[in-house]
Every structure is written in structure tokens, then in C-alpha cells.
Design a protein around this nucleic acid. Structure first.
Lengths: 91, 91
DNA sequence: CAGGTATTTAGAAAAATATCTATATAGATT
DNA sequence: AATCTATATAGATATTTTTCTAAATACCTG
């Protein structure tokens, strides 16, 4: 919902890989889980966090749950980054 | 050193507050610690993580350790964000 | 409706992170 | 040199996060 959730969501290599995978197109929970050497339950947990951070959206198709990247939420993060690093500073 | 370290470093409200505080100007470890309701040792721990992520740099002055914001490291993070969210996508 | 497939949830264990107190170090001052 | 001041480190505990196994839910198909 806020910056904190966005940061928490992307502060994990598995979740970043999920986002990168979804960049190539929508996919079901099972297909996503197959990408990792983790149980499906664990991947489902990561998907939940990404959903809560609104970085992905869900749609049902038959008994599949299809996930879709929703990158617009990064705007808050970008705004914060510009707050910190936006103005020229002598690095 | 990489994206992972940058994200880990900013994935904590205390550390983000430290960065925001340093945005206003350099400050000593003690001055920074005074900003928080935490022990000096705890703040020192956070400063160490920020240092390791190269988000801040250090300089000694008498027996003070002066911290300085070094925002250029956000570039990797920005690059990754554009990887995910850069190309128009139907959100 | 019975069985099957896909996914989520619950609960426990493991791993990582944050915090504290107490102590150490380093440099400055008397 | 003794002491004081600022900061860092060590070790213990607490909290949070990740992961697993097992069970539950949900929906589809015969």
C-alpha cells in the first residue's frame, strides 16, 4: 500500500525473480512455482506478499490463478528515490 | 554492493530516516543516534549496514565520525525499476 | 456428486534481522 | 599518563521472515 510495503515486497530475490518472470507475460501460480526450487506453498506465500503490495494482480481462469505484473506501484518508490537522490549532491 | 544490498539497506524505516536526515546535511554518529528512540549501539548497527551498502560515507573529525549521504548508489536500483516498470504495460 | 487438479492456509521449525546491555577501542583533553 | 568523550563491537535475546509439511478450499470434469 505504501512505500514500506513496496520495499518489503521487492526486498527478496525470489520475489524480484517472480516480477522479472511476469515481465515476460502473465502466468499461473503453478507455472511460477515451477521456476523455483521451493515448494508451491512457499511460492504462494511470496505471491501473497506481492499481491498485498499491489505489485501483481490476479485473475481466475478455470481453476488456475493467473498473475499479472502491475508495475505502476513503483511510482511511490521512484518518488522517494528522487527525494533522496534527486537533487544534485556531491557524491 | 549490488542491488540486493541497496534494497536491504533501505528496507528499514530507521535506515530510511537516517538517509532522509543526512539529506539535510552531514552529521555525526551521535547526532544521528539522538534522532531515534534507540540505543546508540543500535543506530551504530544501522549505520554500518548503510555504510556496507555504500549509501553513506564516513570521515573523521576529532573524535567524531561524520556521516555523509552518498545517493549515487541508487542508480542500480533505478535501473532495475526501469527493467520492471520502464516499458509501458497495461496496468 | 465423486474424484481430480490447482492453489491457499495453518502451524511449526529454521534462518535472518534488530535490539539491548556491557565492554572495547580510539582519539582528545587535562 | 589518566581520564573523558564518541563510537564500535560482542554476545545474548527478541522479533520478523522464510520455509516446510500437512490439511483445507475451490473449482472443474466425468
Amino acid at each position: 500500500m505504501g512505500l514500506s510495503d513496496t520495499l518489503k515486497a521487492i526486498n527478496d530475490p525470489v520475489r524480484r525473480a517472480i516480477l522479472e518472470f511476469l515481465k515476460q507475460g502473465d502466468a499461473s501460480a503453478g507455472t511460477i512455482a515451477d521456476q523455483f526450487d521451493l515448494t508451491q506453498a512457499t511460492v504462494s506465500y511470496h505471491l501473497k506478499l506481492l499481491r498485498q503490495a499491489e505489485l501483481i494482480t490476479v485473475k481466475k481462469d478455470k481453476n488456475f490463478v493467473i498473475y499479472h505484473l502491475s508495475a505502476s506501484v513503483f511510482e511511490d518508490l521512484l518518488a522517494w528515490l528522487y527525494t533522496i537522490g534527486g537533487t544534485p549532491h556531491d557524491n
